[in-house]
Every structure is written in C-alpha cells, then in structure tokens.
C-alpha cells in the first residue's frame, strides 16, 4: 500500500509539471491554432535562468524560501520575454501564411534555442541546486512523499488556480477567450488582438519556466536538451485532454503523469515513454478530439 501511495504522489508530481507546460501549448493553440514546438524550450530556458539567478542569490546568502520565490519570478519573467520575442519574430510575420509555415518556423525556433543555449552555456549536464527546503514534518513519510513533491504540487495548484481566475473573471481573460473564439469579432469590438496573442505567449512561457525550475530542483541536473522530451510529453498531455481546452490540458497531464508512474512502478521503468505514447494513440483512436475537446467543426 505504501508503494501505491509513493507511485500516486510521483504521478501527481509529474502530472502537475506536465500541466504547467501543457497549458502553454493549449492556450496558444486555442488562440492562433499553432502547435508551438518551441514551447519546450521555454521550460529549458526557465530552468537555466533559475540556475543562474539562484546561484547569484545563494552567493548573497538569502534564505532558501526567498531564493525560491525570487528565482521563480526571474525565470517566469525571462522566459516570458523569450516567448514574447519568439512570437514576434517567428510567428507574427506568418500569421496569414499557410498553416504549415508557422509550424516549420516553430521547429526552427526550437532547434535555434537549443543550440543557442548549448553554445552560450554548455553542452554538458550541469548540477542544479536543491531550492526546495526539506520539511521535518514529512520525515516519517519519507518513502512516500518528499518535500519537493509537495511543493511542486502546491505551487502548480496555486499557479493553475490563479490562471483559471485570470481567464474566467478578468477583463483581459475574457478578451483572451473572446479572441480564441472569434478573432475577427474581437477586432471589431476594439480588442487589440496582437497584444492578446503576445500576452498568451508570455503567460504560457512563464508557466513553463516555473515548471522547469521546479523539476530541475527535483531532479538535480539540467542541460540544453531537457525541453525536448518534456515538451513532447506535455504536448501529448494537451492532446490527450483536448488541445485548446484549458481544463483538458490539466486533466490530460494528470492522466499522463499517473499512467507513467503506475506503469513504470508496476510493470517496467524501461517502457516509461512507451506507456505515455501508447496512451496517446489509444485516446486518439477512441476520442480523436481528446478527453475534454470538442469535435472539430469545419467553419464555412
């Protein structure tokens, strides 16, 4: 039973990280219909920014919780700036181009950013400091749930709740939904659609960066290529839940995380990715629009 709970927590932790990344995919897809293949790189850049900022702050001797919060802010802002720039440079000029063009541009951005970090930083794995303090009260349950599991769950729940409130109740959030539903009409009521799209990229990238920081601290090492697999997995989660749907992305992420955790725990860890992608194939066969997605209706 203890093993079951250990796997459960490991699955939830994975799921919440996937969710932080998957939200960016789904929001961007919802608003401009683009699969942003450079999104995984925002997670990687977030992790690198976090490494640099946290190292500097450690030198100044700040307490651990303060370092964690400041680092998360810095990573979110910096990755947000990257997201903004990528959209401006690589996607906006192709807004009215055939759909394949921005997709190729996105893949190009992904390759460019990976290699940029490889050259500017290092091709090797670098150790990442533990930014999450050990909680004494968790010691008796050490085998089941670690401090970082708990913090990852708490932070991602908080961030997702904040995002939900933003999208549901604020003026900007409503404008984001309006733009996703009918871009032309959004323009006609005076919404600056370009600005809303930029904002979507900034928010999505910031969330991915927070995910990157949390997982880097959990695993303890990063390199320039970590965005690729994380990005593909989160993308899988977004498709699983129904791309374009925000609750779908969260649900898909937890389904994926739990599936991976239980499958590796009870079957074999060699097949971790096989389980993830088999699940995707199954869902796409039986529910092509994803768990919460709407069946696509061609507009005429």
């Amino acid at each position: 039973m203890e093993y079951f709970f250990e796997l459960l927590f490991s699955g939830l932790t994975r799921g919440s990280i996937y969710a932080l990344i998957a939200l960016g995919y789904t929001m961007v897809y919802g608003i401009i219909g683009l699969i942003n293949f450079a999104h995984g790189e925002m997670y990687m850049i977030g992790a690198f920014t976090a490494l640099i900022v946290s190292s500097v702050l450690t030198i100044y001797g700040l307490p651990l919780p303060a370092i964690l919060v400041l680092t998360a802010l810095a990573a979110a802002v910096w990755a947000g700036a990257y997201g903004f720039t990528v959209e401006r440079l690589a996607y906006r000029p192709l807004r009215n181009a055939p759909r394949l063009a921005p997709l190729i541009s996105a893949i190009g951005m992904s390759i460019f950013l990976q290699n940029y970090v490889l050259l500017a930083q290092t091709p090797d794995f670098v150790p990442f400091p533990t930014l999450i303090p050990e909680f004494a009260f968790l010691e008796p349950y050490g085998g089941i749930v670690g401090s970082s599991d708990l913090v990852i769950l708490a932070v991602s729940t908080l961030v997702m709740a904040a995002l939900t409130l933003l999208i549901k109740y604020t003026r900007i959030g409503k404008a984001m939904r309006a733009t996703a539903q009918d871009q032309k009409m959004a323009l006609l009521v005076g919404i600056n659609v370009d600005r809303i799209i930029s904002l979507t990229f900034v928010v999505g990238s910031a969330l991915a960066a927070i995910g990157g920081l949390l997982i880097a601290s959990h695993i303890g090492q990063i390199n320039f290529a970590i965005g690729f697999l994380a990005g593909i997995k989160a993308f899988t989660a977004a498709v699983l839940g129904g791309i374009g749907s925000i609750p779908g992305a969260v649900l898909g992420s937890f389904v994926l995380g739990l599936t991976e955790a239980f499958a590796t725990g009870y079957v074999s860890s060699d097949y971790e990715d096989v389980f993830a992608f088999s699940l995707l194939v199954l869902i796409l066969i039986f529910r092509p629009a994803g768990l919460l997605g709407k069946a696509a209706v061609e507009k005429v």
Partner: peptide
Amino acid sequence: CQVPEGRHVFPDLTVAENLDMGAFL
C-alpha cells in the same frame, strides 16, 4: 462600431460577458 454579417456572438462567453466585451475599451 460594426455588427458584422452572421452576428458573430462569442459562442462560449455568456450573454453578460459578451456585453462586457463591447465595453472592453
């Protein structure tokens, strides 16, 4: 301000939210 052909109500926003979008600026 224009009311385009085919109305273009935001389908998943509520009636009140649709009106809010009119007051966006």
